[in-house]
Design a protein around this nucleic acid. Sequence first.
DNA 1: TTTATTAGGAAACAATCATTCCCTAATAAC
DNA 2: GTTATTAGGGAATGATTGTTTCCTAATAAA
Lengths: 184, 184
Amino acid sequence: MDTALDRAVRVFRERGYHATSIGDLTAAMRLATGSIYKAFRDKHAVFLAAFERYTARRQEQTRSAAARGTNGRDRVRNLLLSYVAQSQGTEGRRGCLVVGSAVELSAVDSVVAARVGAQLKTNEDFIAGLIREGQADGSIPGHVAADDTARLMICITQGLRVVGKARLPLDGTRLVGVAMKLLA
Amino acid sequence: MDTALDRAVRVFRERGYHATSIGDLTAAMRLATGSIYKAFRDKHAVFLAAFERYTARRQEQTRSAAARGTNGRDRVRNLLLSYVAQSQGTEGRRGCLVVGSAVELSAVDSVVAARVGAQLKTNEDFIAGLIREGQADGSIPGHVAADDTARLMICITQGLRVVGKARLPLDGTRLVGVAMKLLA
DNA sequence: TTTATTAGGAAACAATCATTCCCTAATAAC
DNA sequence: GTTATTAGGGAATGATTGTTTCCTAATAAA
């Protein structure tokens, strides 16, 4: 069932919520219509489960990318580099369920809106924490405004997903090189 | 007809493409079904016309915001401030048609994908031009990489629309204050 | 072995979708 | 004044949507 949900994640990422029909889901999840409705109340419940699975996995990836750094500054850099990599090529074209949900659903679906907002807040807090770590270990100047900088970096990461979905090429080294000025 | 198209823009911004039915369009545009299909070949054509109208108007607003600056640096600052303002509150919740199209359609609709890409490129070139102006008038250091910085700023502006649609509050002065470090 | 219980699949369902068709007024041409 | 031509409106149409129902096969319980 978890592998079926992974396949649902993929379809929702590529097509979004409304453009994904139950037929698309049966084909992708390799489950018949009745089986899907036996496992989930309706299409919306499938989406919510897929969303949760996606964010859990992404959070894992993001944190392990950050963990590869040796100090606060390096951890932020690695996090940003990981986001650029995720926003590019095949993976980038596949899209991000969080930005997809924010754009397509958060205006009309308060349940999804709440989860999107919570996810963004979690990521923002994580980045702010990394910045404070950097200030503690001396790799980031103390005058950097951690919260404001974290919020701007969230905008950068979400914007990367939009631009990546639009197929614009993204040079990780150069882009992140520029972005690191925010920690000066 | 132009005022009807403005109303179509509003609906598409709020609901996106797939979630907007012809019924929604007739209600919003105050035109009967037959009238819409007499003016446009199909729903897709209505969307394309709305997209074009939206980008034209937005481009106007962005350029006039930038024009209020007295040098390159100030023009970039005003452009960013204008983007934050557009991404906030009622207007922000309404959403951006470029971001919406990139996320919802560019993977499956090559016509829309091309227009989205062109629009992003136009905006990026405009910002890069402002940076070069600033370097010429001395308000921006010559060592700033104009193209890379412009691309990152595009990510910021698109990300602002995503975050604004998710209802996170955006403090323009503080956010842009941090972002201006990219021109240091 | 027999009986329950369950997972899964396919057809049937009503509702909604985009689209087409035809009708009515109103304006333009002659 | 009469006739074309056009803009606009609304009902009808076929396809597709999400959902429900029923059936089958397999496993677990007795």
